[in-house]
Design a protein around this nucleic acid. Structure first.
Lengths: 145, 145
DNA sequence: TAAAATTAAATTGTATACAATTTAAATCCA
DNA sequence: TGGATTTAAATTGTATACAATTTAATTTTA
C-alpha cells in the first residue's frame, strides 16, 4: 500500500530529528544538570524574569501535567521559586532564584557548542527554521490549549 | 544575553512541531488503538513482514529500552508476535499476526486524513521533508546506536 | 448575589524516551 | 578449546508528554 510506505512519511524525519538534536544537547546540558525541556523553561525565565505556569505552557506548548512536575524538579534544584499569585490565587508565578540567575552565565556557550556538535552552518539553521516555524505557528491555533 | 533568546533557538520549533503533528495523528490512530510510535512499528512491519528488534531500533532510532515495552504492548493487543530466532537466540523477530496484517486496511486513509487535518499541501510537505531529512541522516551516524 | 460556568494548577494514569546495567548467547582469539 | 569480548534484548530508574479528572479560585449571569 503505497501511501503507507515508511519512507513516504513526513512526520518521522521531524520526530527523529527532534530527538536527535535533543541528544546533542544532552552532554552540554548535563554539565548544568538540566534536561532539554528544563533548559527551555530556564531560557524563558532568563529572558522574562517571571512567568506563570499558563504562559510558560502556552509558549512551550506544554500543559500543566508536564510542567508542574518539571517545575517542582527545578525548584528542588533551587533554580526557581513557585509563588502563588496574591491577586489571583489560581495562578502560580515562577521566579528565578539567585542560583537560577547565575546559571545563565554557564549556559552562554551552549548555542554555539550545540551548532558545533551538530556540524551545521548558520545558513542551514536558518533554512530549517524558515521551513519549520511557519507551519508550527499556523498549526498551533488548531490545538485545544 | 542575545544568543540565549528563546526566539533564536532552532531546536524548539522542531521539538514543538513534532509534538504538534503527533497530536494531529492521535484521533486518527485512536480509532486503531495505536500510539504514534506503535504506528511507526506497524508501518515497517506492513512493508517488511518481519523485522528484529535491532533493525526496528536502527530504523526508528529507538533503543530496546523503548522498543521492548512498546512491542510487548503490541503483542498484548495481538497485532504482533515476538519470536526468538532459532539461528541466534539473542535475536527477537517481530512478526504480524493476521489481525496485525488486517489492520493495514483500516490504516490506509490515515496519511491523507492527516494531511487534511494539518491543512498542508503536498508541496509544503515536500519542502519540509527536503529541509529536514538530509540533516537527519547526516547527523544519524554521530549517534552511538 | 448565589448558583453555574470558567479558569489555573495539580493529580492520576498510561506510554514513550533514554541512560545505565544486566543477562544470555555468540564470536574472538590466545 | 575455553576464557574474554562482543552483541541483542531486557531490565531498572528517571524524566518527559498528554488525556482525563479533580481541586480551588474567579468570573458570569440569571
Amino acid at each position: 500500500m503505497k501511501q503507507l510506505k515508511f519512507s513516504h512519511q513526513l512526520c518521522f524525519p521531524i520526530y527523529a530529528l527532534s530527538r536527535l538534536i535533543t541528544s546533542h544537547y544532552q552532554p552540554l546540558l548535563g554539565e548544568l544538570d538540566l534536561t532539554y525541556p528544563q533548559y527551555l523553561v530556564m531560557l524563558l525565565l532568563w529572558e522574562h524574569q517571571s512567568m506563570n505556569v499558563k504562559t510558560l505552557g502556552e509558549t512551550l506548548m506544554l500543559d500543566s501535567g508536564t510542567l508542574t512536575p518539571l517545575l517542582k524538579r527545578l525548584e528542588a534544584k533551587k533554580l526557581i521559586k513557585r509563588v502563588r499569585s496574591k491577586e489571583d490565587e489560581r495562578v502560580v508565578n515562577i521566579q528565578l532564584t539567585p542560583q537560577g540567575v547565575a546559571l545563565e552565565q554557564q549556559a552562554a556557550q551552549i548555542p554555539l557548542r550545540l551548532a558545533d556538535s551538530l556540524g551545521v552552518t548558520p545558513a542551514e539553521v536558518q533554512e530549517l527554521k524558515d521551513a519549520v516555524t511557519p507551519l508550527l505557528y499556523r498549526l498551533k491555533p488548531a490545538l485545544k490549549c
